[in-house]
Every structure is written in structure tokens, then in C-alpha cells.
Design a protein around this nucleic acid. Structure first.
Lengths: 160, 160
DNA sequence: TTAAAACTGTTCAAAAATGAACAGTTCTTT
DNA sequence: AAAGAACTGTTCATTTTTGAACAGTTTTAA
């Protein structure tokens, strides 16, 4: 069936398209992380926690998909560096509550403003998009991410 | 200026949106790689070389942004496994010509068909997009990728 | 033609990321 | 309430990735 084949090619093309963006993003994330003495997981953690100011370590794991050993080590480093506070959840001696310190918030702001940081570079990259293009991109990404999120989260898969 | 602030938020929102897709994609790439006894760099290499059938190792480095030590090791593994052929470029004793072996081509086809592979999962994820949505996504991604590609490739940056 | 500089890929020691085993806690079932 | 199962995070040995030094080749320019 020709149209099936058509669809297959479409999907391949789209996957490549995402991959092309993602490998470039990773390049700048890597660079930004190194320039601020962070590992890539640590950078991810900061960016994930930033809009909420505080999060359970468990939730952070679910959001980032980082293996829990990686998460534990990365968080530890961030706490050492003074960017995060870590304390036991009261009424639950297993879970850890993580929160951005004031230093941490300031640090994130600094990163956002650094020339050559992923944030600055990306800002320029999307500068010329129209309102409509932005909205459609967000909408489509949201749909794809939601689908993927739902996959594999169900069965035997968990962050080990 | 309010509209500047507006733009900033837009950019942040878009970056998050890409990140949400990318972390999910990476999850499946990782999974697909492991299931086929590949490292993530090795998987990237195969997917990059696949449409061309053959490439210079140098070009592969430029396309994937993999550090050259990583590239060298990963390629070596693929050659050992019999998926790639490697030979010196004739008339140039530095560069290496890499090409998919027949076994390698077959291997890639197999991966594409595996249930739960990134390819299958992604296919389902984008199944319901309209023709128009696909085209716009491709177009926008292309623009962003092109911009990012141009950045940093110029000055002191190269794959070490 | 040479010497110096730039290029391409490999090697190897160091750093980063991860799985598996674990320790302590909480929840379930009896 | 006691035993067993499930949960949450840490530790540590192993694996993966990477930067730096290198070896060999080609290009540049003296």
C-alpha cells in the first residue's frame, strides 16, 4: 500500500528532524553545563526544578527520567555546591524535599543571561518565528510528548 | 518593555517544549540501543550513515558532533561487530571511509521493525498529525536547526 | 626542498553515568 | 502486631564517555 509507505517515510523524516535539533541543543547544553561547573544531569535538574522552586526527589526522577543513582549523585553535588537545599519530608522519612536556595535562584538567572548559553542561543534561533508558528510548534510538541510519556511508563519500565 | 519580556517567555517555553520531547526520545533511543547491543553513540552513527550508505569518518564527526575519541571507539565497535566496513580513503592516508556492510543494512532494517523501538513508538506518536502539521513542523525545525548549526561551528569550537 | 603548521584518527588515563545490591522506611496482609 | 512486599534513596563496582597527548599524514610557506 503506497500510502502506508508514505506515512513511514513521513515518520522517519520527522524523527530525523527532531534529531537534528536535539543534537544541536545537546551541544549547547553540554557547553553551558561545563562553563558553569555542572554535569549535564545537574543542569537538567536545575532547569526542571526552576519553575517550581521545590520538588520531591522522586518527582524529579519521574520528570527527568534520570536513573536514580545518577539523580542521587547529581543532587548531592548540587547540594554541596549550595544551589539546592535538601531535607527530609516531614512525616515521611524516605522522601527527600529539594528546593532551590537563594544562591541557586540567582545562579540560574545568571546562566540565562550568559552569552553563548543555550538560552541565549536558542532565543536567537526562534526570534524570527511568528506567533502562530510558535503556538503550533508548542501544540504539536505537546501532543507528541504526551504520547511518548504515556508509553513505557506503564509496564516493567521504571527508573532503575 | 513588555513585549521583550513576552518574547523571552516564549523562547523559554519553546525550549522546554523541545526538552520534553527530547528527553522522551532519548529514553527510547537508549532502550533501542541497549536491546541491540549498541551504545548510544553507535546508534547515532548507524542512523546517520544509513541514508548515505557510506561516509568519511570526518563527516560523521561533523554531523553527529560526537567527540572524536568517542567516535573512534564507537566506530571500532561497529566494525568489530561487522556492521560497518572501514578502509583508508585512496589517495589520502589520513581519512577513513566508512560504509554499511550488507549485514549492517539488514540490521538497521530489523531495528526499524522492532516493536518498542524508537522508530515504532515515534511512528505511533506522529500518526495522527495532519499533512500540514507535519510540513510545518519540518519547516520550523529545519530553520531552527540551521541556525543552531551555524552557531559555534565558526569560532574556537570543533569536536575535540 | 624543508620546516612548520594543520589535519585525521587512535590510545589511554580520567571523569561521568549507571546497574545492582543494599539500608532504612512505609504499606499491606494476615 | 508481625511478616512480607513495596518504596525511596545511597553506595559502590562497572561501564561508558571524554579530553589530552600522541603518531602519522598532508598542506603551507619559507
Amino acid at each position: 500500500m503506497g500510502s502506508e509507505n508514505q506515512k513511514l517515510m513521513r515518520s522517519t523524516q520527522l524523527l530525523r528532524s527532531f534529531w537534528n535539533v536535539q543534537k544541536n541543543l545537546m551541544r549547547f547544553v553540554q557547553k553551558t553545563a561545563v562553563e558553569n561547573d555542572l554535569s549535564v544531569p545537574q543542569y537538567s535538574i536545575l532547569m526542571t526544578i526552576a519553575p517550581h522552586k521545590e520538588m520531591l526527589q522522586k518527582s524529579l526522577g519521574e520528570k527527568t527520567f534520570l536513573p536514580k543513582s545518577t539523580l542521587s549523585q547529581a543532587v548531592d553535588g548540587l547540594v554541596q555546591a549550595g544551589w539546592l537545599n535538601r531535607q527530609q519530608v516531614e512525616g515521611n522519612r524516605r522522601e527527600m524535599q529539594l528546593s532551590l536556595s537563594e544562591k541557586g535562584e540567582a545562579f540560574i538567572k545568571t546562566i540565562h543571561l550568559q552569552e553563548g548559553s543555550i538560552h541565549q542561543v536558542f532565543r536567537s534561533a526562534v526570534e524570527s518565528l511568528t506567533e502562530k508558528q510558535c503556538d503550533e510548534l508548542l501544540e504539536t510538541h505537546q501532543r507528541i510528548a504526551a504520547y511518548l510519556e504515556a508509553q513505557g511508563a506503564g509496564q516493567g519500565e521504571g527508573t532503575k
